[in-house]
Design a protein around this nucleic acid. Structure first.
Length: 439
RNA sequence: UCCUCGGUAGCUCAAUCGGCAGAGCAAUCGGCUGUUAACCGAUGGGUUGCAGGUUCGAGUCCUGCCCGAGGAGCCA
């Protein structure tokens, strides 16, 4: 893009303006807001890396350039050159004394104003809402979380082995799946989990993870649900339930510390109380299902032993601690067929859910997997699952079966928790929900 | 799928007992040399979600439908 840059120093981004104090530079961006006076105008310009106040003084720039600023509407794009100036009155500490400007595109009346808007309106304009500071901060943190996730596993000799998105059958047999026609092979389904494939990969590579989108066609309508969400699923050969829990807590600690270290400005903008994230360190409390039930009863909940924990139950449990809590050994009745039973308590599974602190609820679900061929066949029958689609999965128990464990972490719920958000819809660039598939 | 709440200007909302459709922001025009969601003045802006009903008269009451939000179940 040509523009006034040529005569005004280097083209740079707003986040590095402090390196150019008292020098002339060029910035390319969009008008975030504008305040004008008779002979001085303040144009707030954002470029994706930050926001800078550009000061246009009529007596300095002349009437022609000054009147050019009158064209600028919210979100108009422009190339602006000026001298970087440290000034405490400027938001951000640095401002630009404008020397030259080129208006690239005059924006039509922009729907999202600096005032309040409702959720429906903002979600209808999600493609534009991404430009506002809160959403920008959330998605930067999402980026860092995903980066930390990959770093964590990569640094520990895990191999990324992604699972297919189109699958021939349900993974767990319970959830409602999205389906689509698949040529002459009948229906294909959008995956609800990559786990079974990750198990196969773990038998090949030892330590693996898959990371991709997953889909649930259930008509869930709450602040914790999306129909399309991202999940990272590590799977480790030779690991038992305790190893799985060790991995989960080290993993969450790593991700949280990484965001605290790298995203201080974003957390501040979101007004996140980081004191609530500081205690997220190992060890996390581990609560046997029996203990969790006792805790609920002690808190006056009329809880039926053997049931799964509801959202309200999870909230009560997680509020007892200053860090995530791991609830393990859930009853078999409320867990998937592939989870290994506790040899001493066959009614319970070698499973674990990690509940995020502050009432955010389940962010991880994991277990040791059933590794015995005959038992697994029995589980398939008990759950009325068809045998043919699972033959390959049974092969993993036919040929050198070993104990193994893994878990799945929901990225959006993790982002919501770390950012302190009410709803997961803001944690993904373009949310897919039961009543929304646009924009 | 069920329960609760809601739908009025581009946006956020108000409108008393059923009695002239309103404000702030945004837009447009004018003013202002340090503004911080700037401020001040003026102007334009309405199929009150849709369809029907009651009434002299409906944004308001009744019936059906559509759309959205929160929650439940299910789950990450």
């Amino acid at each position: 893009m040509s523009g006034p840059a040529e005569n005004h120093g280097v083209v740079t981004t707003i986040d590095s303006l402090s390196n150019f104090a008292d020098k002339s530079v060029t910035v390319r961006g969009w008008v975030y807001n504008k305040r004008s006076s008779g002979k001085i105008q303040f144009v707030l310009v954002r470029d994706g890396s930050g926001v800078v106040q550009c000061v246009v003084v009529k007596n300095t720039v002349g009437p022609e350039l000054f009147s050019l600023c009158d064209l600028l509407t919210q979100e108009s794009s422009l190339i602006v050159a000026g001298r970087v100036h440290k000034d405490d009155r400027a938001p951000g500490g640095y401002e630009m004394q404008v020397e030259d400007m080129k208006v690239v595109n005059v924006a039509k009346e922009y729907p999202i104003t600096p005032k309040e808007h409702g959720v429906e309106f903002l979600m209808d304009h999600r493609h534009l809402w991404l430009r506002s500071s809160h959403q920008h901060a959330i998605l930067r943190i999402r980026h860092q979380i995903i980066k930390a996730v990959r770093e964590f596993f990569d640094d520990r000799s895990f191999t990324l082995v992604d699972s297919p998105i189109l699958t021939p059958a349900s993974v767990e047999g319970t959830s409602t799946l999205f389906d689509t026609d698949y040529f002459d092979l009948g229906k294909a389904y959008l995956t609800q989990s990559g786990q079974l494939y990750a198990e196969a990969a773990a038998m090949a590579f030892g330590k693996v993870y898959c990371f991709g989108p997953t889909f649930r066609a259930e008509k869930s309508k709450t602040r914790r649900h999306l129909t399309e969400f991202w999940m990272v699923e590590p799977e480790v050969a030779w690991a038992d339930l305790n190893d799985d829990m060790d991995l989960a807590e080290e993993f969450i600690e790593y991700v949280v510390r990484s965001v605290l270290k790298k995203n201080e400005p974003e957390l501040k903008l979101l007004e996140r109380d980081v004191a609530k994230l500081q205690p997220v360190k190992r060890p996390f409390p581990r609560l046997h299902y029996d203990e969790a039930v006792d805790l609920l009863k002690k808190n006056g909940v009329d809880f039926q032993y053997g049931n799964d924990l509801g959202g309200a139950d999870e909230t009560i449990i997680s509020r007892q601690y200053d860090r995530p809590v791991m609830v393990h050994h859930y009853p078999a009745a409320c867990k998937a067929f592939y989870m290994k039973r506790d040899p001493e308590r066959p009614d319970l599974t070698l499973s674990v859910d990690v509940l995020a602190s502050e009432g955010y609820g389940e962010i991880i679900g994991g277990s040791q997997r059933e590794d015995d061929y005959d038992t697994l066949v029995k589980r398939l029958e008990e759950n009325n699952l068809p045998r043919p689609p699972f033959e390959w999965y049974l092969d993993l128990r036919r040929y050198g079966s070993v104990p193994h464990s893994g878990f799945g972490l929901g990225i959006e719920r993790t982002v919501a928790w770390i950012c302190g958000l009410e709803h997961v819809r803001e944690t993904i660039p373009f949310a897919r929900m039961i009543y929304r598939n646009t924009p």
